[in-house]
Design a protein around this nucleic acid. Structure first.
Lengths: 358, 358
DNA sequence: AATAAAGATGAATCCGCAC
DNA sequence: TGTGCGGATTCATCTTTAT
């Protein structure tokens, strides 16, 4: 088993410009945070906090950071497919700059998502609230994009309740945290795989191409490989890139059965109401009612419904009799099935079953 | 007892410019969010969502919104004392613009704080994550300010634990929500008093002057009066200002002794099956069975279960394989744990223990 | 009167294909 | 590129009505 993706060594803007346009389904970016730490930070016991102050994280000014941000976001936008989307993670130091820049460039914000940390670092000086979260922005390439969102699958894994914009997850520690020979962490801001897993499961499909322009220790690549996505990682530090490659090589992809897309109600093939009549499931002249028997309509041979002087589709007539804006006729209208009311949607389900679509 | 503060009727920028410089200890601002709503939105039951589409929330472009933001932030900065601080609340529609502007103007971000809504409006169309939070930015007037932060009092009121940057609070509804004679809400975006109470308790002292340039229905004034702070509220809509005045007049100030409480709302402990997978307690592809091994299902990476052609939650699939109406998947499904079947509910209990929600 | 069922509602950038 | 229309979609909480 190979890498199941590629790691490009070099500057992320140049590397993205070398990629073909509209070739990427999803971008996940964890850009430098522009932390303006003044001096070193010490814990109450005087031990030094291993803060994020590597060279790559220093920017002279907000203007320089903004220019850098616009440059990489523009490059990312070029390589994104029209229906692709982008995630960026950041903290209050940089996320407002990033959010403003991506809105200005035409990205369309879909959600901001809060990663609530289960075990954040306390505020040792007691001068602020414990900084217990980071912010992710999820945005489509443009306002009208038909982006991927696996709503039903996420809901099924979440007690049948739709997933909220605040996610509670532990930090990346322990076994998962990459360490070098001397036991020191390889990368200062390694993200937990659980976070990337949620991102990829929510907004990409198996086989999609996921680009991470700030690859670092390769969490995006590791999770992409495991979840059957392809990846492109760009990293300018050879040491990080080597660590990422070794890490990803040891990842086992999951079986297809635990990944396959399932057909949702939205994607299920259309069934015409007339086909119920053609198959003899409903006879012309049958009286349909709503669940409580308050409204009724008569089935015509051509699949239209009649309610008084009105003729129309099951949806139109359903809306009309209720005085509603819209109506799903499949769930609204019922037939009398041996003395019990049953929605005509049950008949549609039988047809779909025959068609071999669950 | 009078108002214990003043309400200025008029444009907030002009009004702030008429105030003396360096005269205010704290600013709390709830500016327009620039929502940019398109058409109407209906709930699945066809009822119409009462959207915020008031004139005051309409801006021509991001540039226009940015200009407005910079103008009011500049005016607010002038009236702030050197050691004063400022809070702004917003959503992803506007908060990045606000955060960028205030950083550019020299404010120093101390925290971003997440208001996690206990009862947010769902995403009715299932196209995004539930937008379940709003963001507050807390910033001092300048980087070296000796701002007020009542660390010890907050910690003491929070079970001796540092207060985190994510706050779980319900929406402003019920009795607290101001209604007019016809029973309609007075203001479309009234904030909960508990939110303002946390802000004022954290970052102001009794007797401090708190300025709210977007006073609306006067939540800031009501809480300020109750907590023994003075307030200046600026509101351009006379109807809102009148409602705010009447509201605040009926507020009783609290005794000083009872001011310190920083109580946390109780969160319903809910563990998603997907989180067992994220934490590596169950691997995708694992076969779950019932207690007697009669039924089985495969765990997907996203936390759904697969049984033959069917995909769904642990509860839905549990019900389906049994032909039952409903099923508690937590107690029905078991994993093979070293040759012994153990209910997945045992794994959930371990997570709950970690979360401290036994 | 007490309990249950039904209705209302909240800062929302909320569809997609065929013609 | 616009229009028409099939038909898919909701959670927690508080209030009102029914039993």
């Amino acid at each position: 088993m190979g890498l199941a993706g590629r790691i490009i060594l070099g500057d992320c803007i140049a590397a993205m410009e070398s990629l073909p346009p509209a070739s990427v389904d999803l971008v996940f970016a964890d850009p430098p945070y522009n932390l303006q730490l003044q001096g070193e930070l010490h814990r109450p016991d005087d031990s030094r906090v291993d803060a994020v102050n590597d060279d790559w994280d220093q920017f002279e000014s907000f203007a320089a950071y903004d220019a850098f941000t616009r440059a990489w976001l523009s490059a990312a936008r070029r390589v994104l497919k029209p229906d692709g989307s982008l995630w960026v993670i950041g903290s209050y130091h940089n996320i407002f700059r990033v959010g403003t820049a991506l809105q200005d460039l035409g990205f369309w914000v879909l959600n901001d998502v809060i990663w609530r940390k289960a075990n954040p670092m306390p505020n040792f000086r007691g001068r602020r609230f414990t900084n217990a979260h980071e912010t992710l922005i999820w945005a489509s390439r443009e306002a009208k994009a038909r982006y991927t969102f696996n709503y039903e699958a996420l809901k099924a894994g979440n007690e049948d309740v739709q997933v909220r914009s605040d996610w509670f997850l532990p930090l990346c520690t322990g076994e998962e945290r990459l360490k070098d020979d001397t036991g020191r962490k390889v990368h200062p801001t390694q993200k937990p795989e659980a976070l990337l897993a949620r991102v990829l499961l929510a907004s990409s499909k198996p086989g999609d191409v996921v680009l991470d322009p700030f690859f670092g220790s390769g969490t995006t690549g590791a999770v992409a490989k495991r979840l059957g996505r392809r990846f492109i990682g760009i990293e300018r530090d050879p040491a990080y890139a080597r660590a990422a490659e070794a890490r990803i090589l040891s990842v086992e992809p999951l079986e297809e059965a635990s990944l396959a897309a399932f057909t949702t109600a939205r994607e299920a093939p259309r069934v015409a109401f007339a086909s119920l009549i053609e198959r003899g499931m409903i006879s012309p002249g049958t009286v349909l009612t709503d669940e409580k028997g308050r409204y009724q309509a008569i089935v015509r041979a051509d699949g239209a419904l009649v309610a008084g002087p009105q003729v129309g589709s099951i949806h139109k007539i359903g809306a009309l009799v209720q005085g509603a804006q819209a109506c799903n006729g499949w769930t609204f209208w019922h037939v009398n099935d041996n003395g019990r009311l049953s929605p005509i949607d049950a008949l549609r389900a039988r047809i779909r079953e025959e068609m071999g679509v669950a």
